[in-house]
């Protein structure tokens, strides 16, 4: 009885040991860099942060792009600056010709991991009348948010009242996730930034939009 029990326990323990070893070697923390060899070394898509969008779908930073992306950060209860960030991106969007606009994607990542759940993100996106086919509002865990902000050179800190201090930055990524332009000008279109977006969304750049 005892023997058979210990015989059963022994392999279980061994398996556990190897499993523990495998886990220790294989631990891939949430924002552990993936070092994807298929991506250029300077692509921010190397940062492997799982995001959840406004519909509750999980995605990675570069997953839905397939073309140029304007990426920025915000949080839903932000009273003035974030609406202005979103409005500025919409102005850039509207300044594009239809075929260029169809190629552009927009990703807004929230600072507020605690409150910006998918339904809250959805409500934010609806409030701003964005084109859901091309805009993604997303959340990540706090660790991943810090990584994305670091890669985009965006500063932010949480305040005790639940709001955030943060810098406002729009970043243009090419189809491979490389930073090609950046602006801190808000409330109006930065002409240099727009020029870069136009260049990236021209038909010769990247794949044709899917139909």
């Amino acid at each position: 009885m005892k023997i058979s029990a210990s015989l059963r326990i022994a392999p279980a323990l061994l398996a556990l040991t190897f499993a523990a070893g495998a886990v220790a070697a294989d631990v891939t923390p949430h924002d552990a860099p993936s070092h994807d060899a298929a991506l250029p070394g300077d692509s921010i898509y190397q940062i492997d942060v799982p995001l959840v969008d406004q519909d509750g779908h999980t995605l990675t930073l570069g997953e839905r792009s397939g073309g140029p992306v304007v990426i920025s950060m915000f949080y839903s209860t932000c009273p003035y600056m974030c609406p202005m960030i979103i409005d500025t991106i919409k102005r850039v969007d509207h300044a594009l010709k239809a075929n260029g606009r169809a190629r552009l994607r927009v990703v807004m990542v929230s600072f507020d991991s605690a409150n910006d759940t998918p339904p809250v993100l959805k409500a934010s996106a609806v409030k701003h009348h964005v084109d859901f086919k091309r805009w993604t509002f997303a959340r990540a865990e706090p660790d991943g948010v810090r990584s994305i902000a670091a890669a985009l050179d965006i500063q932010y800190r949480a305040l005790p009242d639940g709001s955030f201090n943060h810098s406002g930055v729009l970043t243009l990524l090419d189809a491979q996730g490389r930073i090609v332009a950046r602006t801190e000008k808000l409330g109006e279109v930065d002409p240099e930034f727009l020029k870069a977006v136009v260049a990236q969304t021209q038909p010769s750049q990247g794949p044709k939009p899917a139909h």
Partner: peptide, 24 residues
């Protein structure tokens, strides 16, 4: 949180783009 240290004290009630930039 090295990128949390020098963020402006109030980035919320500033509508002037220049001030926002300074704030960033």
């Amino acid at each position: 949180d090295f990128n949390a240290l020098l963020v402006a004290s109030d980035s919320r009630d500033q509508n002037d783009p220049d001030r926002l930039k300074f704030c960033g």
